[in-house]
Nucleic acid binder design. Structure first.
Lengths: 137, 137
DNA sequence: ATTGATTATGCAAGTTGCGTGCATATGGAT
DNA sequence: ATCCATATGCACGCAACTTGCATAATCAAT
């Protein structure tokens, strides 16, 4: 019914088990008593920053180690991707990202536990998140 | 006409000379071509954090001294808030901002006397500026 | 390249929320 | 108590958000 609740439900669903398509996600929501269309699911996933990787939807964030310092990836507007790392590892992570030379990345700057990644446009943002997440997982 | 413009005008008016009442402020706005009622002026002053002191309205914090290093906050586009600090204090201020964990803040990077604060959208910018000022007042 | 499956999006309708003025309540000073 | 200044509940209008539908764009597999 409510957008926020639906998005929360989506998060718990994709955390519970791998989900391959928006249509199956929509069905699961329906079973949980939350009616929605594929359109809305698509927009929700976009807003939540969920990304499809290895054939299923996941959140680009970790709760522990295993990703060589990278903790999360987020968006700020249309031209900036913000990566969070474990303390002190931002530079190391940034070096690795730079080394991969993604064409959509215009430039990066690293602080202590944060990296700003400038990209050309909104389309590039999603591609970059997907690529970087793949690089570190 | 527009709320944001009107509030900017109010700020420049109370900076220009001491103003004693909301009614005179309203008249000055009218002369400047900005129609408004006393009700709106009252709400604007509230939102702007303007306070009446010694019989006239003033901004509580025009100088940055005593704000633990923070000097100014400005906007760059829709997704970036730029904070200036006293030399060398950017990291310390940034740590304090991070520790407050505002949900609108996507990430921060500190230099020597400047901090870039990435936020999600234009709405978040206003909220963040207000929050940070509150944090350092 | 073609086809089928999956995801994104322009548009229109419904709904919500914000900004505002009016009227009036509250507060403050003498 | 009265007068002046300021705050606020209410209602209305407009702008922004949310959504579904239909369809376009993208992707995967052959």
């Amino acid at each position: 019914m409510n957008k926020r609740d639906r998005q929360q439900k989506i998060l718990s669903l994709i955390r519970a088990k791998p989900i391959a398509t928006q249509e199956t996600l929509r069905e699961l929501l329906e079973n949980a008593g939350v009616a929605a269309t594929q359109s809305s699911v698509s927009r929700d996933l976009e807003e939540l920053g969920v990304v499809k990787h290895h054939g299923h939807y996941t959140l680009p964030r970790t709760n522990g180690a295993g990703a060589r310092g990278l903790v999360s990836l987020d968006l700020a507007g249309d031209n900036l991707v913000v990566a969070r790392t474990h303390p002190g590892l931002a530079s190391a992570v940034a070096v690795e990202i730079d080394a991969a030379t993604f064409p959509e990345i215009v430039g990066t700057i690293a602080g202590e536990d944060t990296i700003f990644i400038a990209v050309r446009d909104q389309k590039a943002e999603r591609a970059v998140i997907k690529s970087i997440w793949g690089l570190f997982s």
